[in-house]
Simulated scan of single mutants.
Amino acid sequence: MPEAGGIYRSIKLAAQLFGKPLEALAPEELHRVTCVATRQQEIEVLILETPEAASVMLPAASIDASLMEIRRRYADEGADPGNTGSGQRDAPGSLDRRQPDGNPPSLRRR
């Protein structure tokens, strides 16, 4: 089974490649999904480590709009994937991926 951080990617790939849920894959299908997911993750890391990616910032309004869209999409199921229980985002402001310590970029609140 894939790592917790890559589970979404693996679920999506299982549906795209084989048209079935991750837990229904045969061992060779699961191996293929794992290989593709690993390669996608490697490519993503390479892209996020570029100088151009280091200056990307997401405005709070963009994040809010995306969360609203997700909430609307899943409202019928009673699920709120963006809800942390507080009714608000963790912190106001933009997401900033730049890290002065030289570590690989990651999304963090600014």
Rank of each mutant, 00 (worst) to 15 (best):
M1T: 08
P2D: 13
E3D: 14
A4C: 08
G5I: 02
G6P: 00
I7H: 09
Y8F: 09
S10V: 02
S10P: 07
S10N: 08
I11D: 01
K12R: 12
K12D: 09
A15S: 14
A15Y: 06
Q16K: 12
F18I: 05
K20I: 10
P21M: 04
P21N: 07
L22D: 04
L22V: 05
E23P: 00
E23D: 12
A24C: 05
A24T: 04
L25T: 05
L25D: 09
L25M: 06
A26N: 08
P27A: 12
P27G: 06
E28Q: 12
E29R: 07
E29S: 04
E29K: 06
L30M: 14
H31F: 11
H31D: 15
H31S: 15
R32C: 10
R32P: 01
V33P: 08
V33Y: 12
V33S: 10
T34H: 10
T34R: 09
V36S: 13
V36E: 15
A37L: 03
A37H: 00
T38C: 04
T38F: 06
R39D: 14
Q40Y: 10
E42T: 09
E42F: 03
E42W: 06
E44F: 07
V45R: 11
L46Y: 08
L46M: 14
L46C: 11
I47V: 14
L48D: 12
E49W: 00
T50G: 07
P51V: 01
E52A: 14
V56H: 02
M57Q: 12
M57T: 14
L58V: 13
L58Q: 03
S62V: 07
I63N: 00
I63W: 01
D64L: 10
L67P: 00
M68V: 13
E69Q: 07
R71T: 14
R71V: 06
R72K: 11
R73K: 14
R73S: 11
Y74W: 15
Y74H: 14
Y74E: 11
E77K: 07
E77S: 13
G82D: 02
G82S: 04
G82V: 00
N83Q: 13
T84E: 09
T84W: 03
G85M: 07
G85C: 08
G85F: 04
G85L: 07
G85D: 05
S86Q: 02
G87H: 03
Q88W: 03
Q88H: 12
Q88Y: 09
Q88D: 06
R89Y: 02
R89V: 06
D90G: 02
D90F: 08
A91I: 12
A91W: 13
A91D: 13
A91R: 15
A91L: 15
A91H: 15
P92Y: 06
P92K: 10
P92S: 13
S94M: 09
L95F: 15
D96V: 06
R97Y: 00
R97F: 08
R98K: 06
R98M: 03
R98G: 00
Q99T: 07
Q99A: 11
Q99D: 14
G102M: 02
G102Y: 02
G102K: 04
G102L: 04
P104L: 03
P104C: 03
P104F: 03
P104N: 08
S106I: 05
L107N: 05
L107P: 04
R109S: 15
R110V: 10
R110P: 14
